[in-house]
Simulated assay, not measured.
Amino acid sequence: MSHPSISIVVLIASLAAGATASAQRATLTISGRVLPGTCTLSAPAITLDPVKASDLVTGDNALLAGALQFTGCIGVTKATLSFDGTPADGDPIRWKNTASSDAATGVSVALRAGASTGDYLKRGDSDVLVITGSTGSYPLRAGYYLAGTGGINAGQVQADVIVTADYE
Rank of each mutant, 00 (worst) to 15 (best):
W95T: 04
Y120W: 10
F83P: 02
V130S: 14
P50E: 11
L56N: 06
K96T: 05
I131Q: 02
A53W: 00
R123L: 08
S101W: 08
S137H: 00
P139K: 00
G124L: 07
T47L: 12
F70W: 04
A99W: 04
T58H: 04
I74D: 13
G32N: 09
R33C: 11
G59M: 10
G59L: 09
G32P: 06
L56T: 05
R123K: 14
R123I: 06
R112F: 03
Y144E: 01
T105K: 11
S108W: 00
P87H: 15
G136F: 04
K78Q: 15
L121I: 15
Q69D: 14
I74H: 12
A88C: 10
Y144F: 15
L41P: 05
A45W: 04
N97H: 07
I74W: 03
V130Y: 07
R112I: 06
S82V: 11
D91Q: 12
A147S: 14
D49T: 15
I131Y: 00
A99K: 05
D49I: 08
A67H: 07
G85S: 07
A45Q: 15
T135H: 02
I131M: 05
A115N: 13
G143N: 06
T38E: 10
A115F: 06
T117L: 07
R123N: 13
T149Q: 09
D125W: 00
G143K: 01
A62S: 14
N61I: 02
T77H: 12
G85F: 03
P36N: 09
V57R: 13
T117K: 10
K52N: 13
A79S: 13
G59N: 10
K52T: 08
P50L: 07
G133M: 02
D60K: 07
I46R: 05
R33V: 15
A113Y: 04
A79E: 02
L68A: 11
T117E: 09
I131G: 02
T58R: 14
T149I: 08
S126K: 12
G143C: 05
G32R: 08
T71V: 12
G143W: 03
T80N: 14
P36T: 10
K122D: 00
S116N: 13
V107P: 02
A113E: 12
G133P: 04
T77K: 15
G85D: 05
V107Y: 01
D60P: 05
V34Q: 12
T105A: 13
G148D: 14
W95E: 00
G124P: 07
G72H: 08
V57A: 14
S82M: 10
A147M: 00
S42W: 03
T105R: 10
D89Q: 14
G75C: 07
G75Q: 10
L81R: 00
D55C: 06
T47Y: 05
T77L: 11
V109Q: 05
P50F: 08
S116Q: 11
P44G: 10
L63W: 03
V34M: 11
I93H: 06
T86S: 08
T132M: 07
D125N: 14
I46H: 06
L146H: 00
T105Y: 04
L64Y: 01
G124I: 06
Y144N: 03
A113K: 09
G106E: 02
G72F: 02
P36C: 12
A45T: 15
S137Q: 09
Y138G: 01
L146A: 09
T58L: 06
T135I: 10
G75T: 08
D55Y: 12
G148S: 14
